[in-house]
Amino acid sequence: MLLEINDLHVYYKSYWYILKVLNGVWLRVDKGERVGIIGESGSGKTTLLKSILKILPQNGIIPRGEIRYDGKNILKLGDNELTKIRRKEIGIIFQDPMAALNPVFTIKEQLYDIIKHKMMIEGHNPSSKELHEQAVKILNDVRLPDPERVLKSYPFQLSGGMRQRVMIAMALISAEKLLLADEPTTNLDVTIQDQILKLIHKLVTEKNLSTILVSHALGMVYQMTDRVFVLYAGDIMEEAGTNELFNHPKHPYTQLLISSTPRLSSVGVGEGIKGKIPDYRNPPPGCRFAPRCPYVMDKCINMKPGKIQVNRDHVVSCYLYD
């Protein structure tokens, strides 16, 4: 087991209120396993990824929970060790490359910086020639044409697809064990999305990386992962092998989500889900999906359901299967 998360709670504090976003999340990722997390926007997917690296925004707090990575509890690690993990072991691809790349530095400056820090952790101070070689190699790895020109560019001079490739390059430098990808293609065209996904898939396989792919696009998760966790409003609703989950979804939320996705081979989509994500200031005390659930029962409203093992490879958190 490379990563294991138990009972993770994450709150965002504001001057006036507390947003209780993650509500006891669990997650596990084996070595070399590709895990997907699906759920509507606002469910806390980004929050979950950021907690793994302990890079939550300033107002984010973790009142409770455990994140075991490679045998260590991330939440208890010192800054030095965390930095080491962030620079060498876990890489992250953000949803919006513009927000992650620094607009005032060239790609070269930003790439060199990352490579240098990583090599210094390995006890080696690279020369500028080595840095350049490494940078060109990594840009070639992500299939960026004309790496020399890319290195000289500022982020705004690149297209969305190219920026996303640069982001992947940067993430890969620091990802020797685990790659986190937060909706890596959300703002891209399907054609570019396809290229990027194939690229990630290839690189991950080559390096035998574990990955967590976060998305609200179900097709992408179906294609790219071995195991899927369904996150809704800060709770894991269901966990199963990818095929099992998409072909035999158990939780009403998962079922509605899957039936809402338009198909190419047939006409007609499900009716969607009524209502919207709850207000995190005052979330439902029981199952957080209860207010929107077509099968809601009395007990759903008052008490959060536990994990229910429906078969060897399938866990659901829903009283319907109790």
Binding site: A217, L218, L257, S260, G272, K274
Partner: peptide
């Protein structure tokens, strides 16, 4: 999201 999209499409 797909769930809202489905409602709007319908």
């Amino acid at each position: 999201d797909v769930s809202s999209q489905a409602k709007v499409l319908n």
